[in-house]
Design a protein around this nucleic acid. Structure first.
Lengths: 191, 191, 191, 191
DNA sequence: TATGAATGAGCCTTCATTCAT
DNA sequence: GATGAATGAAGGCTCATTCAT
């Protein structure tokens, strides 16, 4: 693992433990096993970490999504798997998700948000295009916009249950079902 | 305006101008025209402001929503008006929305988020109940969950356009149309 | 003594002991018996001290000069006393003199140098005007310029002996005599 | 140009641009086109540069002085040329002059100041000896001391006008005239 | 209630110096 | 000799909070 990755991962860990504000650069470097000054060879400041962290988070998300959604499953099942995957990520990283977003928001790096999310948007777009061509969704969908709406919807649904340390599996499942139902109608999924 | 409200409004203004991190208590009191110590007569710390600010933001949102959505309009139109209202609020306060959320998230006050949002959720719930009773939406809707999904969806859709200083009215309108279409299908709105 | 004066005097003392570079704000506040943050209520940075210190140094110089130069002495004696006074200040403060100058030079405060020195220049100007009117000096003197030349000459002469920790009284006296002789001719002092 | 000279010249350039304190070894090596570590092969520390820089500055000064002062000119003219030369150097290097002095002052290298300046003092001494032998100056001059007084006087006069970015040629010329007049009297120059 | 000068812990950041290659 | 990534001590400065008035 490169020193830069080292820093990013150490930072993610500390942020999860203490939150962004409470985490000091000193915490990060201790955790990464490097010297204080070394941090600044790779990042100009603590906030400059955010885009790199966001990128890693999106990578993690996509890894899980790709692992979970089966290529050859029917579209409806794929959607269900997708919702499951996003909930999985949210459960694991809900604390950090909001923080990164806020971290980006409180810097000049906000514009990078779209860039960072782009691969995820594209992946969902591909999914929708396939469904459209298979005529299993309504044909009035604007692919690009809808892929973003979909992610926004499911992520906010996941946050709603996980942000409050909900551990009640039943509650989580009901939320998943409801958002899936909502989604199926929204996309006009046939059968 | 009471001194407490004074502080809250001064804080909102400063947060919008400089972000939460960069805003100091000193900035807030200067802006509020009070002494440094007076701040602590009303709030135990800087972070203790967050719930109060969130409350004000929700109030503002609901004021606009109530003003925009016409009591006697057909449901579909009400939805359209609702989307418009949420976009309106987002345009005006997009910078601060994320910050408050993050502000709550980085404290112990996060649990208050639900409480603060409760009136808005209830208002939407009432809207959906009405529609259900009028049988203009699908009858498989879970009111409580769906009202939250709806808000989550529309707010994230609004953020997607406004977070990047989009001023292109056409672009905004397309996003509104797409989210409305998405929503109409999701709720199974008839006619 | 006001807190501000307190800081200035503590700084002068520390600068003399350790030099400007080696002196930290922390040293200064410890010496002044105040908190770290208090320093910044009065001075925006360590370098912002320089004009205040320079002012105090010029005050000290003028106090000594006024004490040493006798109102009713003949001009030639006054000059001799003046040279003595400037040498006295230089002996006491030679380390700091150069440092202040350098301190001002390495900031944007350099322009204040003239302002700070103004009272001293004026005092010498008055001395020269008196001598001119008494016709004990050549009548081709430009008062303003010459007062500055005089100070520049004598201070540099003093530095030349004291900068190297010269403690040999004879050596110092010879330098005083030589600069006085130089000065008497330069001003065309009669008798 | 040797690597050592390279460093010295790069340092002079950076010092003029940013001042001594703000100039880092990193700046110097970048400017010299060498590696960070290489610097320490030639100089034991940043401050160890100062004597080398001072030496270069004195060399530059003497080059200009020798070029300007004509061997066979009458003494009075030589003096005028000398003043002109010192002003020329000061105009070009006024920012750095004070800084070097301060740089030496804030180190243990101060004692080298005399050594560095020695060639210049000797050159002026030779000039005065010649004048004394030609009986064009008063015969009470102590050559060694006076040569230092002369340089101190003229350099401080030059600083007085150039330190404040005076670009008014008339103003500069008046200062030159006044210091020359002062000097002619001081040395008792005949005719 | 209201004030605002004072506090001081602690963070971010810099940068001269080193050393393995 | 040359390199430049890595070091880590140290200092400037901020700012939430307190408390005597």
């Amino acid at each position: 693992m490169s020193k830069k990755e080292n820093i990013v991962h150490a930072a993610i860990q500390m942020f999860r433990e203490k939150g962004i504000d409470k985490t000091t650069v000193s915490d990060i470097v201790k955790n990464a096993g490097i010297a204080q000054g070394t941090f600044y060879l790779y990042f100009s400041s603590k906030l400059a970490l955010m885009p790199a962290i966001a990128e890693v988070m999106v990578e993690k998300t996509m890894d899980i999504v790709k692992d979970t959604v089966q290529e050859d499953a029917p579209f409806q099942e794929k959607l269900e798997q997708l919702v499951g995957a996003i909930f999985l990520v949210a459960r694991e990283y809900n604390e950090i998700q909001a923080l990164i977003y806020a971290g980006l928001a409180s810097t000049e790096h906000l514009k990078e948000w779209e860039t960072v999310y782009a691969p995820f948007y594209q992946w969902i777009s591909a999914l929708l295009i396939e469904a459209e061509q298979a005529k299993v969704v309504r044909d009035t969908i604007n692919i690009e916009r809808t892929s973003k709406l979909l992610i926004g919807l499911v992520e906010s649904a996941a946050e709603q249950v996980y942000l409050y340390d909900v551990t009640d599996e039943t509650e989580v499942n009901r939320q998943k079902e409801e958002v899936l139902l909502f989604l199926l109608h929204a996309l006009g999924v046939k059968q």
